[in-house]
Design a protein around this nucleic acid. Structure first.
Lengths: 230, 230
DNA sequence: CCAAAAGTGTTTAAATTACACCCATGG
DNA sequence: CCATGGGTGTAATTTAAACACTTTTGG
């Protein structure tokens, strides 16, 4: 009944990245078009088997960088999926990560076996291979709960943003609406964003003030027991 | 530069379980005394390499059952640890789970290569092998945040418990104190626990009422948008 | 009757909600 | 001058916080 160690060292690990971006009031997710088996010629989460000579978190960055060119972005491990039959080539456990980026700050360039890379509105994601739909669902739910308790929403916005933009972001992710005055009051009272002095321009209406998120202030406040909550 | 699939199917996966229990106003964690290499003759988290023919969550239950006899308990995946050098025998990724049990309802029986199994007060845990201290730390933090937002504390208490007991539990885990009246008011106003009609007996002071957590009520309330928050 | 923990209400402060109009710009 | 979104304050309600004494049992 006791099996030796050899039989257990036969698994592979992959990483699957759920990269969220925000654009035109839409929450989007980055998919690649697979140019390799299995599931060649399918849109899928950017993920790949990892080589076994790097730390896990490092592997996640490398895989993403390889397939999409994205580098140095906010990434966090979310869950490991390990159904026996989830991969046709053998026993592959996949560790899912989620990442948030400012779409306009990065140029996504498919490489390695990724033939294309494109942003899909979160509600227009096609059927995905493996258990990628399940992973995406998990990531969406995590994003929803996390964005209310940590100031990660700013990762999805440009450096300078308007209060309306951040409200739209929250409304899109949480699928709800907020009262403008109350939303602004609460957000501003946290003292983690400041008026940059700059203004919108070239808009066909009253230009909005541009604000800026101050990480340092958040970290300071956190030290003194403050918790972000929206 | 491209490596074949073969070189990637050489990892092993283990599961490490952080089993929390509560007893005598103390939060405790279950450790086993290892009777197998590596780190033979050390106290460690109950964990083991998994065989590759079961789903991951199922493996976690099997490992725990094997080593400690515990079965059919609340378990949840928390994080995967994958430092390259974390295991002396090769590349082993470990998926950590946390579990909560009512100490008095279960009899822990070490088996397989676990020579002993014992409850350690959370602040008297010795140096552990592998990255188990890191895992335990992660689990403790997760427990702290989770217990405030989900009614999982009841998993640590006997079926019938007093309000003082649950308050002690919260105070022990969160390392804080609560005002008795406010704590009770808030907890009772959630309508997820009820007075069982039973009373404490054989105590050298006024006996307390025994309450009971009603899962069904929580699930109903959750449906209608209620969120647990203490 | 003493020790030990159980049980209970009110007042104050803080946070959240609801709600409607004027402003600045481009076309 | 019109269309578009930007920007603002107050009152009412709800929720959270602070706080101290009486009760019941066993020994």
């Amino acid at each position: 009944m006791e099996s030796g160690f050899e039989s257990k060292f036969k698994a592979a690990i992959s990483v699957d990245n759920v990269v969220f971006g925000f654009d035109n009031n839409d929450l989007k997710v980055l998919l690649i078009y697979r140019g390799a088996e299995p599931y060649k010629e399918c849109w899928a989460l950017p993920g790949d088997l990892i080589s076994l000579d790097q730390d896990l978190d490092e592997s996640a960055e490398i895989v993403l960088q390889n397939l999409t060119g994205l580098d140095n972005i906010y990434m966090e491990q979310i869950h490991t999926f390990g159904r026996v039959d989830r991969h046709p080539f053998g026993r592959v456990f996949t560790v899912a990560y989620f990442a948030l980026i400012k779409i306009e700050d990065y140029n996504v360039k498919p490489s390695s076996w990724a033939e294309e890379a494109a942003w899909f509105p979160i509600n227009e994601v096609p059927e995905l291979p493996f258990d990628h739909n399940e992973i995406l669902e998990y990531a969406k739910n995590l994003l929803k709960s996390k964005i209310r308790r940590q100031p990660i929403g700013f990762e999805l916005l440009p450096k300078y943003f308007t209060l309306t933009e951040i409200q739209n972001l929250y409304e899109a992710i949480l699928e709800t609406t907020f009262d403008t005055r109350n939303f602004r009051k609460k957000l501003l009272s946290m003292n983690i964003i400041i008026d940059s002095g700059k203004m919108q321009s070239d808009v066909a209406h009253r230009p909005a003030k541009l604000y800026k998120y101050i990480t340092k202030k958040y970290l300071q406040l956190q030290q003194t027991g403050f918790t972000f909550d929206l």
